[in-house]
Computed example of a mutant assay.
Amino acid sequence: MTAMPAAQPERPRADAAARRARRAVLRAHHPDLGGDPAELIHRLAALTRPDTSSRPVVVRRPRGLRGLVAWWRERRRRRTRPPRVH
C-alpha cells in the first residue's frame, strides 16, 4: 500500500503575481547582484504596503455558544475592579 502525497492547497493567482513581482525586484536591486540596498528596501516596502483602494474587510463575530464564550472572556479581560486582597 502506497501513501498518497499530501494535497497542496492552490495559491490564488494574486499570490503568484505578487511573488513574481517580488522576485523581479530582488533580481534587479539586490546588493549581492550589484544593486543599491536603499533602493531594494524602498521597492520591497512599496510591494508589501497594503492596498488602501481594495474592498473593505468584513469581520464576522461568532454567534451562539461560541459568541457567548467570547463575550464573557472579553468582559472578564476588561474588568477594572481592583482585587479584594492587597
Rank of each mutant, 00 (worst) to 15 (best):
V57M: 06
R66D: 14
W71R: 08
A7K: 07
A45S: 01
L47R: 03
V25E: 07
A38K: 02
R66Q: 12
A28C: 02
R66A: 10
V85R: 14
V59H: 04
P56K: 02
T52L: 14
A28S: 09
A21S: 07
E10V: 14
R27M: 02
E74Y: 02
R13Q: 15
V58N: 00
A17V: 15
V58H: 09
R79K: 11
A24C: 01
R75K: 10
M1A: 11
R55S: 00
R76S: 12
R81V: 15
P83W: 12
H30K: 05
M1P: 07
G35L: 06
R76F: 07
R20C: 05
L33P: 03
R63I: 07
P83V: 15
R11M: 13
V85P: 09
E74N: 12
P37A: 06
R81A: 15
P82G: 14
R22Y: 12
R55P: 01
T2A: 03
L47Q: 09
R81M: 06
G67S: 04
R11G: 04
P12T: 11
R75L: 10
L68Q: 10
R78D: 08
L44F: 03
T2M: 00
R66W: 01
R23C: 05
P83S: 13
T52M: 12
A7R: 13
L33D: 12
L40F: 09
L40N: 13
R19K: 04
R19F: 01
R61S: 15
R77E: 05
R78K: 06
P12E: 12
S53R: 05
T80G: 09
E39K: 11
E10H: 03
L40R: 13
R84W: 06
A45P: 08
P83H: 05
P50A: 10
Q8K: 06
M4S: 06
P12V: 11
L65R: 14
P12N: 14
W72V: 09
A70K: 06
I41K: 05
E74F: 07
V85Y: 11
R73F: 06
E39M: 07
V57Y: 01
M4E: 08
L33S: 05
L44K: 14
V59S: 08
M4L: 02
R13F: 12
P82H: 03
P9K: 08
P56Y: 00
Q8F: 04
H29R: 12
R84I: 10
L68W: 00
P5L: 02
T48R: 15
T2F: 02
G67D: 03
H29L: 04
H30E: 04
L65H: 03
E39D: 14
L68E: 08
T2N: 05
T48M: 12
D32A: 12
R79Y: 11
D51I: 07
A14S: 13
D36P: 00
L65T: 10
H86W: 07
R79V: 08
R43G: 00
V85M: 09
R73H: 14
H29D: 03
A18W: 05
R55D: 09
A16S: 06
P83A: 09
G64W: 06
